[in-house]
């Protein structure tokens, strides 16, 4: 194991989980603001428990999958997942689609919940559950994708757990969405890293002998970053000047 694999894997798991945890926190806080902490907390706890069950159930199966097949499947999924993030981040950086705004997402979430004020608290809990489960599944996928196949599951998990604990702690103290985090820059960085890992693992799965071995990931990341910057500049929308 070299730093060229270790550092990108742990930082990709940390930064990717940071983004997902912030998005989950926004929904949980919206539920807590409108319906109270009980349904928000119970929904989040149920989501975490479901995630734990999924990880406990599927985790041991990873060891049974042949390494080349695991690398190929994970590589293909990583390419789809990472380049989807990267495309969105490029279009947001270029001003083609609006930036993801946690404050706006929080406002929309609370407004929607207030519309259903007469309904039972379990509906609010369900929103919290769904947010934690779906964002958590993305975290689990990122950890497996960057950690499996190179024996980095533990460090990648530690990176992801650190990010989730950081966001949960900040949300608990601040009691409002973390709107100041540069989410698009984080998504761009994670998209670059996941796409680089995706090319690497897919190639390994196809039997490609990469020049420089693990160090090739750093080169791939630099190329994806370059293409992302070129793409953002090429499609940048001119700023509208007020008359």
């Amino acid at each position: 194991m070299t730093w060229a694999t270790f550092a990108p894997a742990v930082s990709a798991a940390f930064l990717g989980s940071l983004v997902e945890a912030i998005e989950a926190l926004t929904i949980v806080l919206a539920v807590a603001t409108v319906r109270g902490w009980r349904p928000a907390g119970l929904g989040a706890a149920a989501g975490l428990a479901s995630l734990a069950l999924i990880v406990a159930g599927l985790g041991p199966l990873l060891d049974r999958v042949p390494l080349l097949l695991l690398q190929l499947v994970i590589g293909v999924l990583l390419l789809l997942f990472g380049m989807r993030w990267l495309r969105k981040a490029i279009l947001r950086a270029a001003g083609v689609i609006p930036l993801h705004d946690e404050a706006a997402a929080f406002a929309a979430g609370t407004a929607e919940l207030r519309e259903h004020r007469s309904r039972l608290d379990w509906l609010a809990g369900l929103a919290s559950f769904k947010a934690v489960l779906l964002e958590g599944l993305e975290v689990v996928f990122i950890v497996i994708a960057v950690g499996a196949g190179r024996g980095l599951l533990l460090p990648a998990s530690a990176g992801a757990l650190g990010a989730c604990a950081l966001v949960a702690g900040a949300g608990f103290v601040l009691h409002r969405p973390l709107a100041r985090v540069p989410e698009n820059a984080l998504k761009l960085a994670v998209g670059v890293m996941l796409s680089a890992f995706g090319v690497f693992w897919t190639g390994e799965g196809l039997g490609v002998a990469w020049p420089g071995a693990d160090l090739a990931i750093v080169g791939f990341a630099a190329l994806f970053l370059l293409v992302a910057a070129l793409g953002a500049v090429a499609v940048r929308r001119p700023l509208e000047v007020a008359a």
Partner: peptide, 13 residues
């Protein structure tokens, strides 16, 4: 195949 994969992915994006 690695060159095809890398160049193709970058071009597709």
């Amino acid at each position: 195949a690695g060159v095809v994969l890398l160049a193709g992915s970058l071009f597709a994006l």
